[in-house]
């Protein structure tokens, strides 16, 4: 049985929301899909997916007035948000993909390309399952091993220096932010919807937070 949820998956024309919806359906959550700022402001829970370029995505959000809607929902109404992959990057302070661009600023660190000096001969994009190290205090990783595998596909990353929230990391050359959580803000650089039961548990943990709200 599925229950109509107050979770909105934000559709701004970037990437595959099909697989996110498929995972939510599997978990019994009947999320709505919207690109309407009014719907987004009214949602208790938001999911910001995305694949593609930071600049294009940020421009798409701005053109539809979605950036302001997201900020109002998250900062004023304390709605919960989960950003996935590019969605997480957009929550950063700025991105340097296709020229410098300001982000939503929900997470205070910038997003830059993997630095060849750090990663050596490792291939970019960083594609595939890789180990994520989480802390016992993490809500998203509740019920999972402290080192669990998740599926990544990205060429840009956020470094963890100075972040105050709960940071889970992955090592590719150096540590980068694999997942972040602080109060009502959640983000993963990896794709939980492509990470087998590990990802399903993580999504379920996010949904359970919605329940506690």
């Amino acid at each position: 049985m599925t229950i109509k949820s107050n979770l909105t998956v934000i559709d701004y024309g970037m990437g595959n929301i099909w697989s996110v919806l498929s995972a939510l359906r599997y978990l019994g959550c009947d999320a709505r899909v919207s690109s309407d700022p009014d719907v987004i402001v009214q949602s208790a829970s938001l999911l910001l997916p995305g694949v593609g370029s930071f600049r294009k995505a940020m421009v798409a959000l701005q053109e539809k007035g979605l950036d302001q809607a997201i900020l109002e929902a998250v900062q004023t109404k304390e709605s919960k948000i989960l950003g996935i992959c590019l969605g997480m990057q957009l929550m950063g302070s700025r991105g340097s993909e296709d020229g410098d661009m300001i982000g939503l600023g929900l997470i205070p660190n910038p997003v830059d390309k993997f630095n060849p000096q750090e990663i050596g001969t490792a291939k970019v994009p960083h594609i595939g399952f890789d180990l994520v190290h989480s802390s016992p205090e993490s809500t998203l990783f509740r019920g999972l091993s402290r080192a669990a595998d998740f599926y990544f596909v990205h060429s840009y990353r956020m470094l963890p220096g100075g972040l105050k929230g709960n940071v889970s990391t992955c090592v590719y050359g150096s540590d980068f932010v694999a997942a972040y959580e602080q109060d009502n803000i959640y983000a993963t650089q990896f794709h939980p919807e492509k990470s087998q039961t590990n990802g399903l548990v993580l999504l379920k943990n996010f949904l359970a937070q919605e329940h506690d709200a």
Binding site: K4, V201, L207, A208
Partner: peptide, 24 residues
């Protein structure tokens, strides 16, 4: 190879499935 626990699916995910979303 990546590791995940299929048992998690049965134990953790299936339990109180309907409690995960709040009705509108």
């Amino acid at each position: 190879l990546p590791v995940w626990d299929i048992q998690l699916l049965e134990q953790h995910l299936r339990s109180n499935k309907t409690a995960q979303c709040i009705p509108t």
